[in-house]
């Protein structure tokens, strides 16, 4: 995953993988399958999915803050069209949109 960690730059269009593995995952359910824009690259960190099962020696993976339009996240969203949500997503959950 090391090569993938710098895979995206601010402004890139990305989509969160729509997957439902069991275990400790820090990509919230509500954002899976949704498309957004990279706000910033946050650096490399230990993979929480591995660390949660005591595997501490895996390669670090990239972490991104991704901005989503609320109207994209919730089809029945009742706020303003310009409302947004920023979420930290690990690289292994992101694909180019």
């Amino acid at each position: 995953m090391t090569g993938a960690s710098a895979a995206f730059a601010a402004g890139d269009a990305v989509r969160v993988r729509r997957a439902f593995p069991i275990g400790h995952v820090r990509a919230p359910f509500y954002i899976r399958g949704k498309a957004g824009t990279v706000e910033r690259y946050c650096g490399e960190f230990g993979n929480p999915e591995e660390r949660s099962v005591m595997q501490e020696d895996g390669p670090p993976i990239g972490l991104y803050r991704v901005r989503f339009r609320q109207a994209e996240v919730w089809p029945d969203y009742r706020g303003r069209p310009e409302d947004s949500i920023d979420i930290e997503i690990y690289a292994n959950w992101l694909e180019r949109a």
Binding site: R26, P28, G43, P48, L63, E82, D83, I85, E88, I89
Partner: peptide, 15 residues
């Protein structure tokens, strides 16, 4: 106010 956008920040990871 209506003219102000609301941005939510979900602290899901390291920040």
């Amino acid at each position: 106010p209506d003219g102000t956008a609301v941005r939510v920040h979900d602290s899901t990871a390291e920040l």
